[in-house]
Design a protein around this nucleic acid. Structure first.
Length: 208
DNA sequence: AAGGTTTGCAACCGCATGAAA
DNA sequence: ATTTCATGCGGTTGCAAACCT
């Protein structure tokens, strides 16, 4: 992604004085990192203002949580993580934030993207190959037809099953296909224009 | 090499929920 | 009890990069 292009997709460019949209620039990232390092997270709307960012609080929060946080891990979803994602998804459906809580350093957005771009696609391909098992195609259909999370919850389980369920849980629908499932590695996506490490070291150098 | 298509991901949007006033 | 505001969530979109013809 080209984070350097200030207004490439900025619909609000004309009224740019107010709210910026679109990709974050390195400068904005640095401002946000710096500000949070010095003042903590606080209320996002006022944080955005105080930091001098022409962004909504929502946008700042998202950028921080999904990208800038020091503990966020990006790229290289391990086979273990992948398996866990599949198990938890089979159990909870599209409850991405809930799934993300079981994968330290991973964000709901990343897991959601990963599911949609890799796993879902691969399951669909496998299904086309093997004439498909009924249970599995049900799950895929749910996502293709955009079923609501409440529907998913009815089909799978609810929060009560939360923590100890994993002990006696066996993945209902994917296990049969794990044989044919080729993890689409490498999933390296660290080739950002600049790395978060870079930003943090910049922050540490110039920070305060 | 050029143009078209597909893929992957960052970011936005709308809605739901909860806390504070 | 009601309203307002902030946050969190899931779905969706836009676009650059990668791939294909």
């Amino acid at each position: 992604m080209d984070h350097q292009k200030p207004c490439s997709s900025n619909i609000n460019c004309s009224q740019d004085a107010e709210v910026r949209k679109g990709p974050w620039t390195m400068e904005e990232d640095l401002i946000l990192i710096n500000y949070i390092a010095n003042h903590g997270e606080g209320v996002w709307n006022s944080l955005a203002k105080s930091a001098g960012l022409k962004r909504t609080g929502k946008s700042c929060r998202l950028r921080w949580l999904n990208y800038l946080r020091p503990d966020v891990r990006r790229g290289n979803i391990t086979p273990e993580e992948q398996l866990l994602i599949m198990e938890l998804h089979a159990k909870w459906g599209n409850r991405w934030s809930k799934i993300a809580k079981h994968l330290p350093g991973r964000t709901d957005n990343e897991i959601k993207n990963y599911w949609r771009t890799r796993i879902q696609k691969h399951i669909k391909q496998a299904e086309n190959f093997s004439g498909q098992s009924s249970e599995q195609s049900n799950i895929i259909d749910h996502h293709q037809q955009g079923c609501s999370s409440s529907q998913i919850n009815n089909n799978y389980n609810n929060d009560a099953a939360d923590n100890n369920a994993m002990d006696n849980y066996s993945p209902p629908s994917y296990s049969g296909n794990m044989e044919t499932f080729q993890p689409p590695f490498p999933t390296e996506s660290n080739d950002n224009i600049w790395s978060i490490d870079d930003l943090w070291s910049l922050q540490l150098l110039g920070g305060e």
